[in-house]
Amino acid sequence: MSFFDRFFGKEKKKSAGVAKDRLMIAIAADRENSRIPNLDQMRAEIISVLEKYISIDEIEISKERKGDMDMLEIEVVVKSTG
């Protein structure tokens, strides 16, 4: 808040600054959540293990944070035999 803003009673922060602050935090969290080292390798290994037992159509891996807990979600779509 600059001297003049205070002087003229403009106490409220302008919304562009609010937007930037909110974006910085949101994007930092997004990036953290999407970052898993060697994800491709991990995916390939998971697939090779699963394929010993079942036929796989698709596999989706995502990282999520719930409260203070990190969760790795692995969704496997099994090939339909019909």
């Binding site: 302008k14 919304s15 562009a16 600054g17 937007a19 930037k20 974006l23």
Partner: peptide, 17 residues
């Protein structure tokens, strides 16, 4: 106009982010 009034995110800030 909105940039002038600080009510729209400016280019430098977008590039920063």
């Amino acid at each position: 106009e909105l940039i002038e009034k600080n009510e729209m995110i400016a280019t430098d800030d977008i590039l920063d982010i």
